[in-house]
Write a protein that binds this DNA or RNA. Sequence first.
DNA 1: ATTAGCACTCTCGACACGAGAGTGCTAATC
DNA 2: GATTAGCACTCTCGTGTCGAGAGTGCTAAT
Lengths: 336, 336
Amino acid sequence: MLTDRRSAILGLVIGEYIETAIPVSSRALVKRHDLAVSAATIRNELARLEEDGYITHPYTSAGRIPSDRGYRHYVEVLMSEEPVGTDEQRTIEHQLHQVRGGLDEWLSLTATILAGAVESFAVVTRPRGNDSRLKHAQLVELHGDLVLLVAVMDDGRVRQSVLSLTQPRTQQQLNVIAEQINQLLNNADGKSALDTAKTLEHTDEAMIVNAIAELIGEQRIAEETYLGGLQNVLQQPEFSEVGRLREAVDRLNAYDVRELVDMAGNAEIGETRVLIGEEHGDAAMRDWSVVVTSYGDDEATGTIAVLGPRRMQYQRSIPRVRYVASLMSSLLQDVR
Amino acid sequence: MLTDRRSAILGLVIGEYIETAIPVSSRALVKRHDLAVSAATIRNELARLEEDGYITHPYTSAGRIPSDRGYRHYVEVLMSEEPVGTDEQRTIEHQLHQVRGGLDEWLSLTATILAGAVESFAVVTRPRGNDSRLKHAQLVELHGDLVLLVAVMDDGRVRQSVLSLTQPRTQQQLNVIAEQINQLLNNADGKSALDTAKTLEHTDEAMIVNAIAELIGEQRIAEETYLGGLQNVLQQPEFSEVGRLREAVDRLNAYDVRELVDMAGNAEIGETRVLIGEEHGDAAMRDWSVVVTSYGDDEATGTIAVLGPRRMQYQRSIPRVRYVASLMSSLLQDVR
DNA sequence: ATTAGCACTCTCGACACGAGAGTGCTAATC
DNA sequence: GATTAGCACTCTCGTGTCGAGAGTGCTAAT
C-alpha cells in the first residue's frame, strides 16, 4: 500500500537523488525540506518503501536510492515536467538555424543540441518513408563506361551509386536514358521498380533500374543516424570510475540503434516512451534509461532518443525530447 | 654524442616502453635481452642518454621513459617498420569489400578498420578536389515553389540544397532551366560560377547558380570527415584514470580536423608525416602523437591519420597508414 | 502514530609502515 | 679506461589500522 505520505516521500527521495547522485538519508530529507515529522518517522516510511520495492540501499547503513520500480512510479505519477522555457526554446532554435544546409546538418546538430540540453547521449535518425518512392533519377557521366546514378526520393532522400555500363555513353545519351527511366518509374516504390527491371531484360537500363530499386529500399544505418553528446553523459558521476567509463563508451559505440527505432516505431507520433533500467530487454544496457519518440508524419518518420544513466533527469528529458521532436516535424514539413 | 651502443640501448628502451607502458629499468633491459654487459653499465649509459635529452624518468628511482626527442630518434633512425603482412592485407581488404555502397561507406569503414589495426583513433577525410568543378546540376520539384538542387562535382562529390523559387514550376520547366544552367556552367569552378551568377541579375536562375557556386566551394567538416576507434585508443593504459579518460574524449571530440588536413596538405602524396607530442603546435593535444598522410591524386586528395598517445606503436602505425592510403587511392581511381 | 535515544554497521580518508624497485656512486677488477 | 659488484639512498605502492562520520534499525517512552 502506497499511502499519500509515502508517495510524497518517495518523490522527495527520487528528486533528491536525481539531483545529487548521492544516496539520500532520512535526516537530509527532513532538513532539506523542513518536514514536520522527525527523521525517525521518515526512517519507518523508508523501510516500508523499501519493503515494497521502490527503493533500496547499497549497504546496511547508507542512504536510499531509487529502484527501477521507484523511478517508474516517479515518471508516471509523481514527477512534474519541467517545461522548455521560451528562452531555452529560442536558444535551441537559434542554434539550429545557425547552419544553413540540408536536413543532414540539422539532424546532426539536433543530436548535439539535445544531448547538451539534457546532459545525456542523444540519437537522431533520419526520417524514413514508410514506402519511399522515386521522385527523380539522374545519370552523370564520370569516366569511360562509369556513370554516377543519383536518385531523389519523395521524402527528400538523395542517394547515389556508381555503375559500370556495358559501353561508354555521352552525357546527352545518358540524359535520354534517364528521361525514359523517369517516365517508366514515375513515382514507383522499391517493389514496382524491381518489377519494372524484369521487363527490361539484361540491358543497361535494367541494371540501372535495379540499382534504383535498391536505393529506394535501402537503409544505411551509419549514414542515417546521428549521435551526439558522448562527452556530456560521461560527465555524470556514475562514470567516475575508469571501468564504468570505458564500458559506457564501448556500449554506446556498439549500441544497435535499430532497437531504438523499433521501440519508437510502434509509438504514435507525439507519444514519448520512457524505458528505465532493465525494462528494455537489452542486458548490456541494464544501467541505462531511454527516452524515445518519433517525429515526422504519415509519409516519413524518424526517431529521437536520449540515453542516460538510470538517474536521468526525466522531468527535463521527456519534455525536451518532445519539444525537439515537434521542432523536427515542422522542419521536415518545411523541407517538403 | 650518441655512440652506437647508446643508440642501440635507446632503441631497446623505447621498444620496451612502447610495448609495456611501464618505465624500463636497467635490470629489466639486461634480463629481457640477454645483454653481454651488466646492469650497472647500462645505468651509466642511461644516465648519458638522459643528459642528452633522449629519455627522462618520472621520479628519482623509477625506470626510464622516452622523451619527444627520444621518440623522434626512434622513428627516424632506430625503428624498423613492421610491414603489413599479406594476411592482414587480405583481412583489411575483405572487411572493406564487405559493404557495397559508395565512397562514404568505404571512408567510414576505413576509419574503423585502421583504428582497430593500430589500436588508436583514426581520422579519414573525404577527398576534396583541389579545384572542384561542376559536372552536372539537376533540379527536382519538391512542393510548391520549393525545389531540390543536386549538384555533381567532377571529383565525385554530390551535394544538395533546397531552394525556394519566386514561382512554382513543373518538373518539365525545371529540366529546361537545369539544361540551360548546365551549358552555362560547363565545367565551371566556384569562382567562375559566381561570375556567371552576376550576369543573370536577380532571376531564379541567378539564385540557382549562386547556390551551385556555394556547393562547389563548400566544405562541410562534419560530413566530410570520418572518425573511428575511440574505444580502441581509450583502452591504452595512459587513460587508466578518469580525469585523463574524460579529457581524451573531450579533446578528440573538439579536435579540429582541419589542422590534420593542413599538416597533410603540404605533404606529397605517399609521404607520411609523424608528429610526436609537443611537436605540433596544439597545446591541448600535447600528449598525443599523429601519423598523417594524404591519398588520392592530382585531382582530389584526402587525408588519413591516426591519433594516439605519445607511446604509439609507430613501427606499426606508419606502414599501416601508408597501406590504407594506397588502398584508398586506388579505390578512388576505380570510382572515377 | 510519533519520536528520542542508542547500539550497531559500514564507508572513507588519514596515517604509518614495510616491501620492492631503481638509481647513483664508489671502489675494485679486467 | 671501461666494466662491474656492492651498497646506501630514494621513492612508490600496497596493506593494514584506526577513528570519525554517516546512517540505519530497534526499543521504549510519549
